[in-house]
Amino acid sequence: MELFLIFVGAVFVNNLVLARFLGICPFFGVSKKVDTAIGMSLAVTFVMAVAGIITWIVQYAVLDKFGLQFLQTIVFILVIASLVQFVEMVIEKTSPDLYQSLGIFLPLITTNCAILGAAIINIQSGFGFVEMLVFTMGSALGFGLALVLFAGIRERIDLSDIPYYFRGMPIAFITAGILALAFMGFSGLV
C-alpha cells in the first residue's frame, strides 16, 4: 500500500514537471509534436530507471562507506553522462530503428535535470531499493504524461489565432500554468 502511495504521489501529486519543476527544458523544447514527445519520454524513462539504480548503489556502496558524500554532485553527473553515452552506443549498434527515433534526444538527456533531480530525491528521501524503483518509475511516467498531454495541447494551439505578443513561448508558459493548475486538483490525494 505504501509503495502504491509513493507511485501515485510521483505520477500525479508531486508531478516532476508541473509541481517540482524538473525537466522543464525538454518539456518546452520537444513538446511541439506528440510523436517526438512520446519518443522523448521513452528515452527519459529508460535512462532515469538505470541511472536511479546505479546512483543508488554508488551512494550506499561507495560514497557513504568512505565518507565521500560531498562528492555526490560530481559523481552522479558523471554516472549519468557516461550512462547516456553508453546507451547511445548500444542502441546505435543493436537497433538502428530505435536509434533513428530516440537518437536525437539522448544527448539532451544528460542536461535534463529530471534525471539528476530524481536521483538526488531518491537519496534525500532515504528510499530503500524497492521504494526507489517504484518512485523512479512513477516519476518517469509522470514526466511522460505531462509531456504528451502538453504536446497534444500545443498541436492545437498552433492552429488557433493567438494575439501577436503571446505567440510562441509566452502562450506555451501560460498553457503549462493552466495544466499545472489542473494537476493541483490531485493534491491531497495522498
Binding site: 509541481a19 509566452p170 500554468g177
Partner: peptide, 18 residues
C-alpha cells in the same frame, strides 16, 4: 504555488517581447 510560476513567466515574456 507552482502554476503561478508558469503563468507569471508567460506574462513577463509577453512584456519582454513587446
Amino acid at each position: 504555488l507552482p502554476p503561478g510560476a508558469f503563468i507569471a513567466l508567460g506574462f513577463l515574456m509577453v512584456g519582454y517581447k513587446y
